[in-house]
Design a protein around this nucleic acid. Structure first.
Length: 352
DNA sequence: AACACGTGGAC
DNA sequence: TGTCCAAGTGT
């Protein structure tokens, strides 16, 4: 009871005035929740604006090609979100007459919508009384209750859920959920929370015991995997060879340079690796790199092998020859995007 | 339950 | 430079 009232009072003065919260449709709410999964506001907001401008309704999203949706998502990461959003839009339009789910249970059947997003959407749009438990909320509650079990254990989730079910109001539960997330992102932040200005300081367990930095308890650090990519950047005048990645792993369905990929970090390009270039009949091979590209779970070491090729080349399956201008409009992984961008500049300078 | 899945910013 | 992330989900 105390918790709810203090939060409400804090929220009345400190509610974040995000532009996507104004006059939002359920569709816009859904898109914003997907975009901001594991993504900072500063990074996601421009993507949200562009996405809504191009696809103002679920019907327009459903009508779009997968390639275009992916291109709009390029640079934001976690591309399954875009693929799932697009697939879900088609399901909603084709199989449900464009009607959105009406509660959290049915929202969670939508691809890309898990427990957090289902609860967030349904509590805000339908007033369903269900807590939306994201990283901010977990952090706040773990500090309040001094939860010793690590995040992402069943015990941790059970404790947080029980606490929130006790405190969430039947009236405007969505506002409560958003207030909690706002509070977690502005006051009860990771690192150095602003406990001096925290309205909960007299009640928060970790605040009282001055042990806030202990929570939330996390599991052991995992060691990053090491992988290497040797890109084959094959040019013929203003044309370049690219292939679409498969739907199996990293950067699924994005366009990319042909590549040799392997576990571990290569020290040099061996003749065996170079042999993978043979189908492209490369001439004047130059090596650029290596450079590092950090992912959350992998450290990528990337080499670029740039070469010219003959005009008449039988391309391997799934490979395409694009003009550089066309290639620049395709959805690509960040390293390929950066490299192509740089190459374009070089090419233009060269032909002045 | 544990791991795969991106990126760029903060410290 | 290295570490830790930021409004999680799918398998």
């Amino acid at each position: 009871m105390i918790f709810r009232d203090i939060l409400k009072k804090w929220n009345e003065k400190n509610r974040q005035k995000y532009f996507w919260r104004i006059n939002r449709s359920i569709y816009q709410l859904w898109v914003s929740e997907i975009i901001f999964q594991q993504t900072r506001i500063a990074q996601g907001e421009e993507y949200y604006q562009r996405f809504i401008a191009r696809f103002p309704t679920v019907q327009e999203l459903a009508s779009a090609s997968r390639d275009e949706v992916l291109r709009l998502w390029q640079g934001l990461g976690y591309y399954s979100r875009a693929l799932n959003l697009h697939k879900a839009a088609r399901m909603i339009v084709d199989e449900n007459n464009g009607q959105f789910p009406i509660n959290a249970d049915s929202w969670q059947k939508i691809p890309g919508v898990g427990p957090y997003t289902a609860a967030a959407i349904s509590s805000i749009a339908n007033g369903e009384c269900i807590p939306a438990i994201d990283g901010n909320v977990k952090r706040i509650v773990s500090r309040w209750l001094e939860i010793e079990s690590p995040m992402d254990t069943a015990d941790f989730t059970a404790k947080v859920t029980a606490f929130l079910n006790e405190h969430i109001p039947k009236k405007k539960p969505g506002l409560f959920n958003e207030a909690l997330m706002d509070f977690g992102s502005k006051v009860c932040i990771p690192g150095k929370p602003d406990c001096k200005n925290c309205p909960f300081i007299k009640y928060c367990g970790a605040g009282i015991h001055n042990t806030v930095s202990k929570y939330p308890v996390k599991k052991k650090n995992f060691t990053k995997k090491k992988k290497s990519i040797v890109y084959f950047v094959i040019q013929h005048n203003n044309n370049i060879i690219m292939k679409q990645r498969d739907g199996e792993d990293l950067w699924k369905h994005m366009y990319d340079f042909p590549a040799y990929e392997t576990e571990g970090h290569l020290n040099k390009i061996t003749p065996a690796i170079l042999k993978h270039m043979d189908p492209f009949q490369p001439e004047e091979i130059t090596t650029i790199g290596p450079m590092k590209h950090e992912l959350t779970h992998i450290t990528l070491k990337i080499f670029f092998l740039r070469a010219k090729t003959k005009s008449k080349l039988t391309l391997p399956k799934d490979h395409h020859c694009f003009s550089i201008e066309k290639a620049m409009t395709l959805a690509k992984p960040r390293p390929a995007e950066k490299f192509l961008d740089q190459m374009k500049n070089t090419y233009l300078c060269h032909n002045k």
